[in-house]
Design a protein around this nucleic acid. Structure first.
Lengths: 144, 144
DNA sequence: TATTGTTATACTCTATAACTATA
DNA sequence: TATAGTTATAGAGTATAACAATA
């Protein structure tokens, strides 16, 4: 158990507040949401991992299998994913992104990035450079 | 309208992902949640702004007044806030934090900071120093 | 008549439990 | 008998609409 200094405590408090606030602003950029956060996140997981079964999706998204059944049904009804029977195991189903689902993900990201890009441009060049070095560290924190 | 360079686009994409992921991890630290996020956020708003009326709280938390009625009722039932009639305007009600509510906020922050502090300690001293300079920039972004 | 807050009711999201089909 | 997925049902959270009390 490492010793935590006062500077560490101050840093974690400051970092926690600013990260949570910035995340809230980013989330607010999709106020015209046509999909729930879980639905959108499920699409992103499919984009990243390719075809998955409902049970695997449920595990990824940390929801129970019956909830994922409904999420996938809603996404399928809107044409963002396809459900197909497994080739050899009749119990299983495989879910994959459609081109329409891919397009939705692109559009969603574009809109959020547009907001953030404008705000970044209001910073000084030095601050932007600082964030460029800090972003990978934040990413490592998020994965740890 | 400023011109956005490719470097800006790359930065905003990287920053958005890492901030959202880190925020998700921080949020997950309160899995034993006894209060909903809106209830907790309402307590924090009261701590920051002092006594407020239900309508003002609803505006702050971006929920409709009837929803705030229920949030305040739940918080009052658990002893985290007090509801009192306004001194001169009989239509109004004022809501304020109790000492118990204040203690809950302190405990909630302590637990989240503990998780983050440990992760920060796994970084190099240089990376921690980097984050110390980056945190205020992130905070400014969140407020802009 | 306007404003503040509440009650009544409905919808969305997710959960647990029970069920069906296949291995 | 075990596994994958679905259906049935319930609970939490929030919304809109209607109402009550006061200004």
């Amino acid at each position: 158990m490492p010793t935590l200094t006062a500077a560490d405590a101050a840093l974690s408090g400051a970092l926690r507040l600013s990260v949570m606030r910035l995340a809230r602003r980013l989330r607010a950029q999709r106020s015209d949401a046509t999909l729930s956060l879980t639905q959108l996140s499920t699409l992103a997981t499919l984009e990243r991992h390719g075809t998955l079964r409902p049970g695997e999706l449920a595990a990824h998204e940390k929801v129970q299998p019956p909830s994922m059944t409904r999420v996938v049904a809603a996404l399928e009804a809107q044409g963002f994913v396809e459900r197909r029977p497994h080739l050899t195991d009749g119990r299983q189903v495989v879910v994959s992104l459609t081109e329409r689902g891919r397009a939705l993900l692109r559009e969603d990201r574009r809109r959020r990035d547009a907001w953030l890009s404008l705000r970044l441009h209001e910073l000084s060049a030095a601050d932007r450079a600082l964030l460029r070095t800090a972003a990978p560290v934040l990413e490592r924190l998020a994965r740890s």
